[in-house]
Amino acid sequence: MENTLVSIILPTYNRASFLGKALESVLAQTYVHWECIIIDDGSTDDTVDVIARYDDSRFIYLYQDNQGVSSARNSGIKVCNGGIMALLDSDDEWMPEKLATQLAYMKNHGYEICQTEEIWFRGGKRVNQPKKYAKPEGWFFEASLEMCLISPSCTMFTERAWNDIGPFDTNMPSCEDYDMWLRACLQYPVGLVRENLTVKHGGRPDQLSVCVPCADRYRILALMKILQSQKLDAEQRDTTMSSLRRKVEIYMQGCEKRGKNNEADTVWNLFCMVCDGKKVPLNTLC
């Protein structure tokens, strides 16, 4: 992998005040065989002016009307030239050794998908990660059912893996990464570089985890999708059904507290259909 072209997929939407740091961290990489595809998802701020400051042919700028982060990532991967892809959100950044270290780790251990440890900032202040977010390594599909255990900006994967697990679901305005990594963890072991090579910034109102309501709704959708994929063995199906039931019950309780009984009934009816092995109209939850 020493001379492998790495395609960095960087979607952005109205993040001009953060984008420069992300691009600087790409330029600072000790591994130089990369292209960075910046997908501007309909920004109306100074994003274009920020990008114009970087005169490097390895930066490739694409513009599309606002369609969401899943569409932006898919668009970037569709036109990329590398055999390895690395995701970077426009409000995050990398340590200089990130690409080189991760590539070497994938080569030495034979991983098709790999991530790094990360440093968290919330509201501009460094915070410690709760233990429940500790990243595992290897095969951990069952653990990934409860919460998303892979961070996009930490992740690198091969073209082969993408062809098996992609694309991101453009119908999901939230939890699209949870949905994608469920498929990944079902089919591949995931490597972990135990070094803090990614800096993740959060705690702002413009983030999907904050501005898109009812994220649990989309986690339920992701679990229903994986159950309908017909790729689970009997044990995996039982474990996934148990996780889905817990999430459905919690979600219904929240709906009932807010007086959304019809929504609770809809989710329950879909869950019963999944239990009975019936085809579920998943667009009902989108």
Rank of each mutant, 00 (worst) to 15 (best):
D233W: 03
D46P: 07
P189Y: 05
D41R: 07
K131M: 14
G254K: 09
M241Y: 12
G20L: 11
T170N: 02
G138F: 08
N163Y: 12
Y61L: 13
S70D: 00
L227K: 03
N108H: 05
C286T: 14
P152Y: 01
D92P: 12
V267Q: 00
C80Q: 13
F141M: 07
Q64E: 04
A222T: 09
P152G: 15
L285E: 11
A161Q: 12
D179F: 08
E137T: 13
T101D: 01
E263C: 05
D40E: 03
K257F: 02
I226N: 03
Y133G: 12
V199S: 06
T47M: 11
K131Q: 10
E235V: 14
G254I: 05
S7I: 13
M95G: 03
L186V: 04
A16R: 03
V190L: 10
D216P: 07
C154E: 11
F168V: 00
K98S: 10
S243G: 09
E159P: 09
Y111F: 13
G202R: 09
F140W: 01
V127E: 00
E137N: 08
L186S: 01
R126M: 06
L221W: 10
D41Y: 01
Q115M: 08
F271P: 02
Q29K: 01
E137H: 04
V199I: 14
C272L: 14
R245D: 15
P96G: 07
C148K: 08
T101C: 11
C36N: 06
F140V: 04
